[in-house]
Amino acid sequence: MRHRLLFYSLLLLAPFSLAAALLSGSADLSLAQLFNGNGTAGEILWQLRAPRAASAFACGALLALSGVLLQVLLRNPLADPYLLGISGGAAVGALGAMLLGLAAVQLAALGGALGAMTLVLALSFNRHAWSMHHLLLTGVALSAGFGALISLMLSLAPGSGLHGMLYWLMGDLSYARQPGLAWAALLATGSAGWLLARHLDVLAIGELKAKSLGVAVLPLQAGIYLAAAVATAAAVLECGSIGFVGLIVPHLLRLLGVHSHRWLVPCAILLGGSFLTLADTLARSVIAPQQLPAGVLTALLGVPLLLFLLSRQDAKY
């Protein structure tokens, strides 16, 4: 079976991408040095590269998973993790903290993400109904609003702080040191997504049809929203707004013939994780010791790949 083969290939790609992340960088370390490594080599490996690779993998996986979930929830192929304003809220929080010179940038970002989540949810309820159409438009409107706030803060920022802010916005893994939270979020949202795979399949063919097939639609939608929001927030807190992973990875997999969520969810986790890990490895090694923001690399690699697959596909996708 085609999707089974794809799944096992992705299962192999994941350790490969992690190994590549551990082995490459501005200091050349051989396999032997890394594994008997104590002193500098061990420090570089276990203090710098390993946590960064673990963060990259978890964040890429979270973003791809969030994209899969939101594309079902909003029934819109353009849905991506940033559509709901969660990353915009986190960015406003983080940049605000940087502008005020506060140390607790992550905490401020978490506050911003939670604030945006609540705001979108509250505004998208009209009377008794929760319409996905409303949710989508509310998210788009709030994202635009956050975008304006971000521009305002960038224009007010002193020159010395600007670089850090821009890197945060473009998605940057150089400060990612605590992959624990992202992995915990991935474990929770990933297993929820996989257990609900058949529910997602049914919801994807329409709310009313799903209802007539026995799905409790509103609780399911609320659960999907929560899982997608948690996944997005956890990824953004760890590595800033890394674009395109959440949009491109699910579509890549669909173009490769994966449609059932039983396969789409685990494949998206594996491909998203490997993709961001490889992109970040490239980001810090192409023009080493200079580092590029990983978000730039994900777009530069992902966009042509998606366009290539799209152009090879029959018109019926």
Binding site: A197, R198, D201, A204, G206, K209, S212, L213, H259, Y317
Partner: peptide, 29 residues
């Protein structure tokens, strides 16, 4: 059988029909 046409489904005809089995038996696959 609802009037609205579902166009979003990208899989095969058999997979679409299988969704009709959702209320019966296993939930995972």
């Amino acid at each position: 059988l609802l009037q609205e046409e579902s166009t979003a489904f990208s899989g095969a005809a058999l997979d679409y029909v299988l969704l009709g089995r959702f209320p019966h038996g296993a939930t995972l696959a």
